[in-house]
Nucleic acid binder design. Structure first.
Length: 167
DNA sequence: CGAATGATCCGA
DNA sequence: CGGATCATTCGA
């Protein structure tokens, strides 16, 4: 789960959908063409946030994750809100969950300013959640990418039946 | 510099 | 389906 002790109080959500991105070897990755000012964070220490802004409208959050010397990240695509402070707003999201990376980032109030935050020690952090049985994990091709690997891999993982998963 | 582009979402 | 709407990147 993801927890943020931010300006709106504590917000927490159970992550139910993620996608994996590589670096240079993955045409769909922002790190595909090597480090740029925006993407250098993906080549650095794992366990920090990489948040980008897209389509002039939406923010999306990644967790930097990779083997030593290789760029990589995990895109957070969906979650289920776990209470929080803004009860009214949280309730509105309860029916639908936080399906989609843009909706997830917006609920947490994340922007590119959060890029580089340490997800172990900062107010924005990951916590281990309840285990999910492997039979409840849906694995599929990634969503919405235009430049894919020559043979697209099933690098999207979602919790079966969760309301926080995109359709 | 200017132009193209995009790991999305919402509404018609 | 198409539009919104801008940070980022690339080519000249």
């Amino acid at each position: 789960m993801l927890v943020y002790d931010g300006p709106h109080g504590r917000r927490a959500a159970r992550l139910v959908e993620v996608e994996a991105y590589l670096g240079e070897l993955d045409p769909a990755s922002h790190a595909h063409r090597g480090p740029t000012p925006r993407t250098t964070v993906m080549f650095g220490r794992p366990g920090v946030a990489y948040v980008y802004f897209i389509y002039g409208n939406h923010h999306c959050m990644n967790v930097v994750a990779h083997l030593p010397g290789v760029a990589g990240a995990v895109l957070l695509r969906g979650a289920e809100p776990l209470g929080g402070v803004g009860a009214g707003e949280a309730r509105a999201d309860d029916s639908r969950g936080l399906a989609g990376p843009g909706r997830l980032a917006r609920w947490f109030g994340l922007t590119i300013a959060h890029t580089g935050w340490d997800l172990v020690r900062s107010q924005l952090h990951l916590r281990e959640g309840a285990p999910v049985a492997s039979r409840d994990v849906v694995r599929s091709a990634r969503v919405g990418i235009t430049q894919s690997l020559t043979s697209e891999k099933p690098w999207r993982f979602a919790v079966r039946g969760s309301r926080g998963v995109t359709r």
